[in-house]
Amino acid sequence: MSKINSRDQQSGESKSDSRRDFLKQSAVLTGAVLTPSIALKAAEAQWDEKLAEALEKIPLKLEVNGVSKSLMVEPRVTLLDLLREQLNLTGTKKGCDYGQCGACTVHVNGTRVLSCLTLAVMQDGRKVTTIEGLAEGDQLHPMQEAFLKHDGFQCGYCTPGQIMSAIACIREGHADSEEEIREYMSGNICRCGAYPNIVNAIVEVKKGGKKV
């Protein structure tokens, strides 16, 4: 794919500029993997993009919804973007990307965390559960059933995060009263405002006593 920018082609920029830039961005080259001289040659041979791609990715093993994955990812890829863009698990939502809304909540080794603030490589060897991993075949998780019954959503965008968080809220032992639920669910924003229905769903699942 050729780059589209006529200005750049006219600028007559020297190769050394572009090499410096490549070196700066391809931080891996300052490490032990490649000596700079090899990298320089690579850059001069205009292998940069392919090389960079190969060098910037590191191996990652994850178990996602019970399935083992062996991946190669850039360290800057968040768990959220890995799930959505590379594993096609788009049930986990991006609502702010800054840890301010809870839409991206997943379980890592059974604990609720924000996947948008989690670098995927830091989760190497761990088990990730997303909304797609809750139901057993056609059998919905009790929390999913309760959200349906109590209409704990409208647009549905915050819903996966709410459900993952709600399950954890019960597991953590913080669903003993409506007030406690409201406090411990406050990291999950619902702009449609289905909050009271979500609380009712959690109360019901908690009272049902099933293991979640």
């Binding site: 049930g91 909304i131 797609e132 349906l148 019954k149 959503f153 549905g156 819903t159 996966p160």
Partner: peptide, 25 residues
């Protein structure tokens, strides 16, 4: 409370299967 019909697209929403605009690969 209770009875009235559940949402027809509710299952897609609670299972993460509903696709929003940035989710078509």
């Amino acid at each position: 409370i209770g009875d009235p019909m559940n949402r027809v697209d509710g299952k897609l929403k609670v299972t993460g299967a509903a696709r929003y605009s940035a989710e078509y690969q």
